Simulated assay, not measured.
Amino acid sequence: MRNRGSHGSLAHVASFEEMTSYFGDDDFRRTALELDEPQLTDYDLFTDTRGIKIYRHCKESGLYEYKTYGVLNEIDPLTMIQVYCDYTYRSKWDSYVVELKELTDAALERGSAIYWCVKYPFPLTNRDYVFMRETREISSEKGGHVTHVSLSKDMSLDAYPPKSKYVRVDDFYQAVAVRKHELGTEVFMHYYDNPKGMIPKWIINWVVKTAAPSWLKTLEDACKKYKT
Rank of each mutant, 00 (worst) to 15 (best):
V130P: 02
C85A: 14
D94I: 06
D193V: 10
R2P: 15
A11P: 06
D193S: 06
D193M: 09
L100M: 07
G24Y: 10
D170P: 10
D76H: 11
E34M: 08
I199R: 01
Y64K: 00
T31Q: 01
G8Q: 07
D25W: 08
A106T: 11
Y192S: 00
E65K: 12
K227Q: 11
Q174K: 12
F172N: 04
P161K: 01
W116Y: 13
S152W: 06
A222C: 01
E34S: 03
V149C: 00
Y69W: 11
H7E: 13
C58H: 11
R29W: 10
P38V: 02
F46R: 04
G144S: 08
A177Y: 08
S156K: 15
P161S: 05
L63R: 01
A175G: 14
S150Y: 00
W116I: 03
V178C: 02
K165Q: 13
P200N: 00
H57D: 01
K53D: 03
D44G: 02
W215M: 09
N73T: 15
T49C: 03
R50Q: 14
N194E: 14
P121A: 02
P195I: 10
A175E: 03
P38R: 00
C117M: 11
T210S: 07
S150P: 02
L108Y: 03
N126R: 05
P200Y: 04
L216C: 04
V208F: 04
D86Q: 00
F131C: 08
K142V: 15
M198R: 13
E99R: 10
E134D: 12
Y173S: 06
K59S: 09
D94G: 06
Q39R: 15
R136P: 07
M155L: 05
E141T: 14
V13A: 04
R50C: 12
F188S: 00
T79M: 10
T135F: 04
D128S: 02
G51A: 08
L100T: 03
Y191G: 09
M132L: 13
V98M: 00
R133D: 06
S6W: 13
M155Y: 03
E65M: 14
I138G: 03
T41L: 15
A177Q: 03
K217E: 12
N73M: 13
V208L: 02
I199F: 05
A159K: 09
Y166T: 14
H7T: 11
W202K: 11
M19W: 04
S9D: 09
N205Q: 07
R50W: 14
G8D: 07
E74S: 15
H12E: 06
R168W: 08
Y43R: 06
K153F: 09
E34I: 07
G62K: 00
A14L: 14
L219M: 09
S150E: 04
N205D: 07
L183V: 12
